[in-house]
């Protein structure tokens, strides 16, 4: 393992020190591992918090700022934060307008956020709503599993719901918009290599030079199947077709197309993939209204990509286009 670390056990804490040093407009609570928007709570604005295991940067801390999240709670590497963190963040971003919790559908994340919401209700009286993202079509048998995982849609949801909150909409409206984003988005990913968790020091799984894991999760969870490596255009089809068939997306639909890097894939390959993805999507008679290309929800150093398609309305597009100023997404300001 070759990584930039001092002590593998200090990676999360030291990265938070770096975030605080690089972004003085943010406020970092190092004891509780929470990144706050510097001016939170904003009077009258619904607060939005998220959080999850570390190792998926820039999600979620890179999305804290005007037009997106008010706070992000960082867990241990690939481990959910604990309820104390979400409770603390909830208290600090509530202006009286209530707080939305954005939770990815993983067993630990859901249970810890549930406990935080229960504690918030009983201890503070803060009005909390939760939205759980579960857009990963790779999990086919959701009845007999923990359900579909929350992946790429989480990024798009945090941007769109963040814009709605910034406009002063109510908690119920912001939560409904968030729910509609999750309901209209689907994703699927593929890994070319495993990730390596610093404390483990070796790859999470073994993948041959000529193999790829189709439908991989963002913690290195196994996917639908292990298949031979193929040209990019064939991989794009293996990702896009199940997504289109699942919602299903139909001729005449308009989408936001998001090609995401999993951490170890260069941008030039992501743009090459975007070209293939766009060609297939347009071939289905689906219009691409907006695009996002880059590494926004990652799995440490995993080489790979995920594709997310979000069916959009004029309202969702306007919220997507609204100004945002965070470490990782920044436009219109």
């Amino acid at each position: 393992m070759k990584k930039f670390v001092n002590d593998p056990n200090d990676v999360v804490a030291e990265a938070l020190l770096g975030i605080a040093a690089a972004h003085p407009e943010l406020r970092v609570d190092h004891a509780n591992k929470i990144i706050y928007r510097g001016d939170a709570p904003r009077p009258g604005k619904v607060g939005i918090i998220s959080g999850g295991g570390s190792g998926h940067e820039p999600m979620h801390g890179g999305f804290v700022g005007p037009g997106m999240l008010d706070a992000a709670c960082a867990g241990e590497m690939f481990t959910s934060p604990v309820p104390d963190q979400m409770l603390e963040a909830t208290k600090h971003v509530d202006s009286g307008a209530g707080v939305l919790h954005v939770v990815k559908n993983y067993t630990g994340d859901v249970m810890n956020f549930d406990m935080a919401a229960e504690l918030a209700a009983s201890e503070t009286g803060v009005n909390v709503r939760s939205v759980i993202t579960n857009d990963d079509v790779a999990v086919e048998d959701s009845t007999w599993t923990a359900g579909r995982r929350g992946v790429g849609v989480t990024v798009l949801l945090e941007k769109i719901a963040g814009a709605a909150a910034e406009q002063g909409r109510s908690l119920a409206e912001v939560a409904d918009i968030a729910d509609s984003v999750n309901a209209n988005g689907r994703s699927m990913g593929v890994a070319l290599t495993s990730c390596t968790v610093p404390a483990a020091g070796k790859p999470t799984f073994d993948l041959g030079e000529d193999e790829m894991e189709l439908g991989v999760g963002i913690h290195g969870e196994p996917g639908r199947r292990r298949v031979p490596l193929a040209p990019a255009k064939e991989i794009a089809a293996l990702l896009v077709e199940p997504i289109v068939a699942d919602l299903p997306f139909a001729r005449g639909d308009r989408v936001l197309a998001f090609v995401n890097g999993l951490g170890g894939t260069p941008l030039i390959e992501l743009y090459l993939m975007y070209n293939e993805v766009a060609r297939i999507v347009i071939g289905h008679g689906i219009e691409i209204g907006r695009s996002l290309v880059g590494s926004y929800i990652t799995s440490l150093d995993m080489a790979g990509t995920s594709v997310t398609l979000l069916k959009v309305t004029d309202e969702l597009l306007a919220l997507w286009d609204a100004p945002v100023r965070t470490a990782a997404l920044r436009w219109g300001v």
């Binding site: 867990g75 241990e76 481990t79 959910s80 934060p81 604990v82 309820p83 104390d84 067993t107 630990g108 249970m111 810890n112 549930d114 406990m115």
Partner: peptide, 15 residues
């Protein structure tokens, strides 16, 4: 346990 374990085991053994 809820405050220190994290993951799914924290809420489950804590509860």
């Amino acid at each position: 346990l809820v405050s220190t374990v994290g993951g799914a085991s924290g809420p489950l053994f804590g509860t």
